[in-house]
Every structure is written in C-alpha cells, then in structure tokens.
C-alpha cells in the first residue's frame, strides 16, 4: 500500500494526495494499491508541481492501523506525517517546568 506525499510550495507544509486534492491529515490521504492508481496519482502530483502547488513529491509505503488509517512504514515518514516525536517550544518548556 502506498500514498503520495509532498510539501506545499508556499508554506512548506507536509501534504498528502487525497481524492479531494492535497490534505494535511494523513488519515484523509488516498491509499493506493494498484499500479495504475499510483501512476494516476503521480500524474496528478506532477500537475500539482507544474501548477506550483507542491514540491518534493514522494511515493511512500504505508500499512493500516487497527482503525484502518494509513501509517507510514518508515520512521522518517511517520515523523513527517505526525510531527516531531519530542515536544517543542512552549510545550517543551512547560513540560520541563512541571
């Protein structure tokens, strides 16, 4: 199982290709199985690059969790999808102060 991810050009945010376009929440991403679905997804991503919507397109491997939602196989992609594994900014400071 795969899905297509990229970064949004204007702000760099991590996005995933979904039926309705590019979404920030991996839970809403289109999980692609068949080779032709991946190919169609990549064609859409190429258009999105040309339209200056996204950059740095990648096809990544995912599995489904108990709730049927996609989870990337590689840690790197999990961190991209779900954020740093450590608290940061005020949240980090408050945690330490507590």
């Amino acid at each position: 199982m795969k899905l297509i991810t990229a970064n949004r050009l204007f702000d760099g945010a991590v996005v995933f290709l979904a039926a309705e376009g590019w979404v920030a929440d991996i839970a809403r991403a289109a999980v692609l199985n068949a080779a032709d679905a991946i190919e169609a997804g990549l064609a859409a991503a190429t258009r999105a690059v040309a339209d200056r919507h996204v950059v740095d397109v990648n096809v990544i491997e995912v599995t489904l969790d108990a709730a049927g939602l996609p989870v990337p196989v590689r840690l790197r992609e999990r961190i991209r999808a779900f954020g740093p594994t450590v608290p940061f900014g005020e949240a980090a400071r408050e945690r330490l102060a507590a």
Binding site: N7, D11, G12, V14, R52, V55, R80
Partner: peptide, 25 residues
C-alpha cells in the same frame, strides 16, 4: 510563486539565503 522560476532554478537561490526544505517545513 508566479511560476517564472522552476524549483530547480529557485533552490540554489533560496539556499544562498539560508532557506532549506526540511521534513516538516
């Protein structure tokens, strides 16, 4: 953003100004 520069053209320019594209942003 207007499409006059491709990413390949833009990347070295942004790097010269300290702008990288990392994992999240």
């Amino acid at each position: 953003l207007a499409g006059e520069l491709s990413e390949d053209e833009f990347k070295p320019l942004r790097l010269m100004n300290g702008v990288y594209l990392q994992l999240h942003a």
